[in-house]
Amino acid sequence: MNRIQTLYKSIIGKKVIAAVTGLILFGFLLGHVAGNLKVFTGSNDQGIPHIDEYGQFLKVAGEPLLPAGALLWSARLVLLASVILHITVVVQLAMLSAEARPVSYVKSKKKAASLAALWMMFSGSVIAGFIVFHILHFTTGTIQLGEFEHGYVYNNLRSSFSNPFVAGGYIFVMVVIGVHLNHGVWSMFQTLGIDNPDRNKFLRTASTAVTMAIILGFIAVPASFLFGLMPEAANYAHDLLTGH
């Protein structure tokens, strides 16, 4: 524990924490996009969209070994902790950097830094705001931008994303996430010291490719609904889903 504390106190340690939490969040995104793609696989023979089934599965995963929701909530806690840590260390580092250059240049020109890299704080803030919004929108249903009913994932999506502003907003944020990941994923390799001149080219290409794939996957959902490519789902009783 002492070691972790010491590590946390150092600049490099903070960056490592940003990288590791970033990795966790990246892993979450991979899982999230994989789940999202179920909107395209249709419904089961009872007419329940696969995505709704999947949503229900997440709630009960781990049963009967663990009580219902335990696994989901553990995952949520890990993600929440990651987000908080990620933001905390990044803000601390940004404050350090601001102190490191109290007087700025009259003229400043960049030879190498990419816009993605320079805009990390901006894209990060957009993403942080989006996370809160997204939970209130599709998880809790607090923000109503269409018809919303717990458990009816497919219909909820369809209802919200048929609104061009909602779909457009989501697509925009997905692009921002893509920009964030484009620098973040590669940066993670560098920070953890697993980069290497011999494989950097591969690492850079791979991280860009994976990022692109994730983002396209995410964008596919609102875009498909927006352009009316998705059929209406059958109405089904909620009991069918939960099995009660």
Binding site: S10, I11, K15, A98, R101, K110, A112, Q190
Partner: peptide, 22 residues
């Protein structure tokens, strides 16, 4: 060396690669 670098008040690396280019 890292600990001395920190106590001198240098900022943190964010992998911009601007140092390498300049």
């Amino acid at each position: 060396m890292v600990s001395q670098m920190e106590s001198e008040g240098f900022g943190s690396c964010r992998n911009y690669a601007e140092c390498e280019a300049q």
